[in-house]
Computed example of a mutant assay.
Amino acid sequence: MMTNLFSSFDPSTYLNTSLNWLSTFLGLMFLPTMYWLIPSRYNFIWNKIIMTLHKEFKVLLGNNIKGSTLIFISLFSLIVFNNFLGLFPYIFTSTSHLILTLSLSLPLWLSFMIYGWINNTMHMFTHLVPQGTPPVLMPFMVCIETMSNIIRPGTLAVRLAANMIAGHLLMTLLGNTGPMLNLVLINVLIITQLLLLLLESAVAIIQSYVFAILSTLYSSEVN
Rank of each mutant, 00 (worst) to 15 (best):
L174N: 03
M171Q: 06
G175H: 08
M138N: 03
P153Q: 05
M138L: 09
M164D: 07
T177Q: 13
I165F: 08
V184I: 12
P153A: 03
L137E: 02
T177W: 01
A162G: 05
A157Q: 02
L170I: 05
L170V: 08
M180E: 07
M141V: 14
L185P: 04
P135R: 13
N149Q: 14
T155C: 12
R152W: 00
L181W: 02
P179Y: 05
A157P: 01
P135Q: 12
H168V: 10
M122H: 01
H127M: 03
L173D: 01
H168G: 14
L169C: 07
G154S: 05
I165W: 15
G167S: 06
P135Y: 15
M171H: 03
M124N: 02
P130G: 06
F140C: 12
P153R: 01
V136F: 15
G167K: 01
P134Q: 05
R152C: 02
F140G: 08
M122L: 06
I186T: 01
M171C: 10
T172W: 10
L137Y: 09
P179E: 02
L137M: 14
P130A: 05
I151L: 06
P135M: 15
T146K: 07
V158H: 08
V188F: 11
I165K: 12
M171E: 09
M171P: 03
M171L: 14
V142S: 06
G175M: 06
C143N: 13
P134T: 10
L183R: 08
G175L: 06
N149W: 09
M180Y: 09
G132P: 01
A157K: 03
E145I: 00
M147E: 09
V136E: 15
M171G: 09
M141H: 11
